[in-house]
């Protein structure tokens, strides 16, 4: 996926401002930034779901080709009807006319640990189960790129880690993942790269250690965080909100 000066305006005000970005195979790229930074809008514009200026390699594709190139997991976990989980996951095969020669649906169900739930109506699942079922739906699309908008929100710690591990496994297969996250520690430990957005702009892009500096956390998130390096990766725990009038900022 390649974005060049991607811009989305709401009225006069740019919600995404000249975003330039490449996501390449084998990456788990974390998209971070405070609420309203433009993470969701960036993903939607990149997919061509909303009007935008600038260039997105995905949005330039015809709808079906785009659907085969990129799977999208929206933030809102909407399921309108009590469809069985297996049928829900199989919706991921629509861009292929419903065909599933390689058993992508079964693989996605197994990968997300949904085998026991496959016949249950999706509307009867718990929040965490539904989140997994929807991730499985996106995996069943078997696209080389996954755009996941806050997939970890509302998941318990084990499910958060498992979800990030699934993304890492996708990257190991040579696919790429662009995932927006609010948990900076989770982002730092599980993403190969972080893209930091602030008020519509990409203000930093690089390794987690390079992006999550105390100064940026203060400038962009207005927080102070405790850092520690552990054998399991960096720990980042926000501990205080900084006062905008504080002379230290």
């Amino acid at each position: 996926m390649s974005l060049r000066s991607l811009t989305v305006r709401r009225g006069e005000c740019p919600v995404v401002d000249r975003a330039t970005l490449d996501v390449t195979a084998g990456e788990v790229a974390g998209l971070i930034g405070p609420n309203g930074a433009g993470k969701t809008t960036l993903m939607r514009a990149a997919l061509g779901l909303i009007p935008h200026a600038g260039r997105s390699s995905l949005a330039a594709l015809p709808p079906l080709a785009r659907a085969r190139a990129a799977a999208y997991l929206p933030q809102g976990r909407q399921v309108a009807w009590p469809v069985p989980v297996a049928a829900l996951v199989a919706l991921g095969r629509l861009p292929w006319g419903g065909a599933d020669p390689d058993g992508a649906v079964e693989r996605a169900i197994a990968r997300m640990g949904l085998a026991a739930h496959r016949d249950r109506p999706a509307t009867a699942l718990s929040g965490g189960e539904l989140a997994r079922a929807l991730i499985a739906r996106a995996l069943a699309q078997d696209a080389p790129l996954l755009l996941a908008d806050e997939p970890a929100a509302g998941l318990d710690p084990a499910q958060q880690i498992r979800t990030m591990q699934v993304f890492a496994a996708l990257a190991a297969e040579g696919r790429s993942v662009l995932v927006s996250l609010h948990d900076l520690g989770l982002a730092a430990r599980h993403c190969t790269r972080l893209i930091l957005m602030d008020r519509g702009r990409i203000v930093a892009d690089g390794s987690p250690a390079a992006v999550l500096t105390p100064q940026r956390l203060a400038e962009v998130f207005a927080i102070r965080a405790a850092h520690a390096d552990t054998p399991d990766g960096p720990l980042i725990q926000p501990v205080a909100v900084l006062d905008a009038n504080d002379p230290k900022i």
Binding site: R44, L47, L49, P63, L64, R66, A67, R68, A70, A71, Y72, L73, P74, G76, Q78, V79, A80, W81, V83, L88, L91, G92, L94, P95, G98, L134, R137, Q141
Partner: peptide, 20 residues
């Protein structure tokens, strides 16, 4: 019919599945 199935997931997800 197929497009309506995709709409089960909401309009954004349906669009991302190639449904106009």
């Amino acid at each position: 019919a197929r497009g309506l199935d995709a709409l089960t997931l909401g309009e954004d997800a349906a669009s991302s599945l190639g449904v106009p």
